[in-house]
Design a binder for these strands. Sequence first.
RNA 1: GGCCCGUUGGUCAAGCGGUUAAGACGCUGCCCUCUCACGGCAGAAUCAUGGGUUCGAGUCCCGUACGGGUCACCA
Length: 482
Amino acid sequence: MKIRTRYAPSPTGRMHVGNLRTALYAYLIAKHEDGDFILRIEDTDQGRYVDGAVDIIKRTMEATGLIEDEGPDKDKGFGPYVQSERMRAGIYNKYAQELIDRGEAYRCFCTPERLSTLTQVVDGKEISVYDKHCLHLTQEEIDRNLAEGKPYVIRQNNPTEGTTTFHDELYGDVTVDNTELDDMILIKSDGYPTYNFANVVDDHLMGITHVVRGNEYISSSPKYNRLYDAFGWDIPKYIHCPLITDEFHHKLSKRSGHSSYEDLIEQGFLPEAVVNFIALLGWSPDSDQEIFSLEELVKIFDYHRINKSPSVFDYQKLRWMNGEYLKAMDPDVFYEKAEPYLRAAIKRDLDLHKIAEMVRTRIEIFPDIAEMVSFFEEVPDYDLSLYTHKKMKTNAESSLKVLKEVLPILEAQEDYSNEALFAAIKSYVQENGYKNGYVLWPLRIAVSGRQTTPAGATEILEVLGREESVKRIKAAIEKLEG
RNA sequence: GGCCCGUUGGUCAAGCGGUUAAGACGCUGCCCUCUCACGGCAGAAUCAUGGGUUCGAGUCCCGUACGGGUCACCA
């Protein structure tokens, strides 16, 4: 049988990285077996609906390469793929009524006031278990309530004795006491289905074979199984993915600053790197390879190797991985992406291509560029102590002497290429019996004003050009004499 | 609090009864080197805990601790 998985997000805002990983795994599971990957929008909560959120989802999937085979824009006969539309088509009501007819569900007219008497607070958390009050209503009472137009919900009628077991592909069999099964709401008083109900109905109707979802649904899965059983439907394979946490081992939240895919992109990460990174959060291949394209992941992904324990989102490692992508990137593509950052930092007419290649092995994300190349624009105000370097045996005094001697050489230098410049300096070094660093160190400080730079002295001279170089060296001499 | 799930270095993780307990990020040192970075090499650092089972346990079983999830007309 062809595998069919689905990603079923709620359009409530940005795309949480945990959700993105769930989507990725669902995609990989399907594609690994050449199956279908479906996108379904679960917008049954009008209160939480955020305008434009569906677009964010679509854009994110497009950018990450998780292209769906079926979805709102690609109806292959299982549509509509948006739950509010399915609700209007009467799908959920039909199935809910079927459950009522079978005695597996019932209408509940309880008011919020009565319901609140059923809740208790434990450890600061509100807990409420429905008492099946409305299950015992007589047909007359039900008809009268209906005639009066009293609002109602439809609840699942769960047994209070025995146990229910469901099977998860990763966690194995999980058995719970039926007393734990609340009579959850299937249809809300506004007529919309709850996630719990719509999810089961749609997964069945859409022929989903593998339900991939977050760990937080594990405790409600027994109730879903009872729904499948009540309808007499085949139960899909369940794959519950572990949680992603922040460095404090708490669920990744907005506070961390990088909880959503969009946050990460805004911070300068590449979509490919993000996908690669989250693929490895909770899953590992059977080799040592760590850098994978989406195509490679499709080829080797084996969901049995998904971890059961939660994993910490390691921002450091993401940065490293992004850097790996930068280093492997085609030079033209790299330049194209780096250019806006370069232009923002450098207004002078310099060879940005050369500078781009300078920073390439030194940055992890593009925003790192700004700080790294700012000296090209302008020499920062620096301390003379920078001229002192123990290993190079330099200090302010020796630097002043060297710079004064090198200045005329550079003024006379015709060929301002890095190679020619280095050769010229080298011969000066040899004539005087110095060490390279004895000359190069002060020279680099003079033209950059920085202790560390993304290039050597002569490379910087080349990019700066003779006029600007000479100007900077003269300024340095003045500063040293000052 | 009830129920459920989890626990290998700081982090991601391999491991499926016998290993010197892989690899990666980060960290430290060395080499390379016109600084830094890249690259190369080396190093420190882990099986939560107590009982079993077994000739032998990170690997299997039970308890404990810790962490997390869940108990909504949210998904």
